[in-house]
């Protein structure tokens, strides 16, 4: 048994060796907000944060998260709440599937950069594919979330 701390709560899991975090989170713990997209860290749908740093959970071993704080889309933070508001205001999602990963990647950006430039946003977000093509809205919403966070 291993203990994973996700969004402040402890979960006991018995994960097979070499099982990536994605599947421990989805299949063993049952938090299904984190999505499977490619399995090879190409699309970003499975993005989570470990101690504040974004990782692709499909390619990160369970052992790398033991004793650390995992944040998933089911979690919350000042940055995530500001982003959620901006996502609502801009009706960002279409199918919504990639948006868990988009929000997590954007949350790390807002946590670490008070004034991201367009280039900063492109760099932070280009690991996340949106097949529906909502990039224009995501970018606009991130800029608005930066302002919302400042006002808060």
């Amino acid at each position: 048994m291993q203990t994973l701390t996700i969004n402040g709560q402890d979960y006991q899991v018995d994960a097979p060796e070499s099982m990536p975090l994605l599947w421990a989170i989805r299949d063993l713990i049952g938090l299904t907000g984190t999505k499977f997209g490619c399995g090879v860290a190409q699309c970003g749908a499975c993005s989570i944060m470990i101690d504040g740093t974004v990782v692709r959970s499909c390619s990160t071993m369970v052992s790398q998260a033991i004793g650390k704080n995992i944040t998933t889309i089911e979690g919350t933070s000042d940055s995530l709440e500001a982003l959620r508001q901006a996502w609502r205001d801009n009706s960002v999602p279409q199918c919504g599937y990639c948006q868990s990963g988009q929000l997590i990647s954007a949350a790390e950006l807002l946590d670490t950069n008070d004034n991201p430039t367009d280039e900063d946003i492109d760099n932070a977000m280009s690991g996340n594919i949106c097949r529906c093509g909502t990039y224009v809205r995501i970018k606009k919403a991130i800029k608005e979330a930066v302002e919302l966070k400042k006002q808060a």
């Binding site: 049952g30 299904t32 999505k35 889309i73 089911e74 609502r88 009706s91 999602p93 868990s100």
Partner: peptide, 22 residues
């Protein structure tokens, strides 16, 4: 429209896609 029917679910990882059936 002020609020998409599924917006909050999308924003909190609560929307149930096929892959989330358990």
């Amino acid at each position: 429209v002020i609020r998409g029917i599924d917006m909050e679910d999308f924003l909190h990882g609560k929307a149930n896609y096929g892959l989330d059936a358990r």
